[in-house]
Amino acid sequence: MQLATDSAKEVKKQKKRNWKRWSIHLFPIPALIIYGLFVVYPLFAALTYSFFDWNGMVRGDFVGLKNFKDLFTLEPFSGYFWNAFGHNILYFVLQMIFQNGLAFALAYIIFKKIRGAEFLKISYFLPRLLSVIVVGFLWKLILNPNYGALNVLLEKIGLGHLQEAWLGDPDTALIAIILVNSWYGLGFGVLIFLAGFQSIPKELMEAGKLDGATGLAMVRKILIPLMIPSIMIMTVLTFIQSFEAFELVYAMQGSQGEPYHSTDTLAVYFYRLAFGGSTGGSTTAVGLGSALAVVLFLFISIFTGLYLKYMQKKQVDM
């Protein structure tokens, strides 16, 4: 009998230990349920649209990969695709420079404890509090060629010859929008990088100093490797956001990426195909739109995956 209860106790203990070990697998479950139900399920249900023929909003026959073929071979669709794709790449590159580069530098300056750090942090972050629609409206007014603050300002400081129809000239429109996006996102970058700088153990910085590293060398050899987590976060985020760039373009230049498609991005193009134009002047092409979303998804996921793999290896190497 004694033996039996002992072993029963043992089993109970074992069970408890097992439970403790297994319970960890419950941790991601709540997130998975909500995310799976409201994001993954609807998106993948919609992705199947790309394999069907669509007659307006009514689903027709299964057509295999025809929509994908059309997207890349049929004019004007293929032309629009590559045009928008190029803009997305430019979007990413300029965001990395103007938003993240600047944010890194500013976070470093604040980290170096200059006076007014509080004020600076709040200032950089304030634009991020606004809704994108507000941002779009606001900058449309500032960049207005006749009444806008920027051109008036240029006039006043004697640089009148630099005045431009910023959002109407295809040479400046996209860059203007990317800069507005950087203005909007700068503060968030500063916060992430600052959190990164502050997570660096002090000893490592001291060690670097003892080794005689100064200035840029210090940044390159010590800071950047230690900043990999936050650099990784910002790069992945910027990459995804650049290729999903939609709201600001839509708010400022409409669903055609005006003027003359010079601000068109893949996500705006997708919206145009899937939902018609913004003023209701167009019919829809749901199949093509979904096919575009699939292509966009594959592209982003492959590059993000490769990048993450590379960064992880780098982190392990350290």
Binding site: Y260, G281, S282, T284
Partner: peptide
């Protein structure tokens, strides 16, 4: 001519802009 995708209306708008 508001049909088609992109519609003829949209096409003339874009092209005139061009």
């Amino acid at each position: 001519f508001a049909g088609g995708n992109p519609s003829t209306k949209t096409t003339i708008e874009t092209e005139l802009q061009g």
